Simulated assay, not measured.
Amino acid sequence: IKGAFWICSLAVVALLSVPRIGGSEHLWMNGLYDTVCAVVFFPLLVYLGASGKTTDKITTRVCKFLGDISYPLYMVHYPFIYLYYAWVKNENLTFEQSLPGAAALVAGSVILAYLCLKLYDEPVRRFLTKRLLPKQKL
Rank of each mutant, 00 (worst) to 15 (best):
A103T: 08
A102W: 06
Y114C: 01
V76W: 00
W87L: 08
G67T: 02
K118M: 09
S70V: 04
L27Q: 14
R125F: 11
L45A: 04
P72Q: 02
Q136N: 10
S109N: 00
G3L: 10
S98M: 05
G23F: 08
Y47L: 14
Y71T: 05
Y33V: 02
T94R: 08
A4R: 01
L44I: 06
Q97G: 04
L48P: 00
W28M: 03
I111M: 04
A107G: 07
F65S: 05
V124K: 15
H26C: 06
E91M: 09
V13A: 13
T54M: 08
P100I: 04
K89L: 09
V88A: 12
Y82L: 14
A86V: 01
K130T: 09
I21F: 07
L132I: 07
Q136Y: 11
L115H: 01
Y74G: 01
V88S: 03
P79L: 04
K89C: 09
L32E: 06
T94P: 00
E122I: 07
L105Y: 03
F41P: 00
K57V: 08
I81C: 04
L93N: 06
S98T: 05
L105C: 03
G3C: 12
G67H: 02
C8P: 01
T94N: 06
I69G: 00
L105Q: 03
G52I: 05
A107I: 06
V76C: 01
K118N: 10
D121C: 02
S70A: 12
L132F: 11
L15C: 14
K137H: 12
I1R: 06
L73D: 00
F42V: 07
V124S: 15
A86Q: 02
R61L: 03
Y82A: 15
V40K: 07
Y82F: 13
V110M: 03
L112I: 08
R131Y: 10
R20E: 13
L15K: 09
R20C: 10
A14C: 13
G52R: 07
T129F: 08
V124E: 14
L15A: 15
G22F: 07
K137I: 11
L128P: 03
K130D: 09
L16T: 11
L10P: 01
F95E: 12
L112G: 03
V40F: 09
C116E: 02
L66R: 04
P100M: 07
A103M: 13
Q97V: 04
L73K: 01
P100H: 07
K137F: 10
I111V: 14
Y74F: 10
N30M: 09
K135Y: 09
Q136M: 10
L45G: 02
Q136S: 12
S109F: 00
S51G: 13
V36E: 05
Y120T: 07
D121V: 02
C8H: 02
D56R: 07
E122H: 10
L112H: 04
R131E: 11
G67V: 01
L66M: 10
K57Y: 10
L117M: 04
L99E: 05
R125Y: 12
Y85L: 14
F5G: 00
Y33H: 06
A113H: 02
V124M: 15
Y47M: 12
Y74S: 01
L132S: 12
T60I: 03
W6T: 04
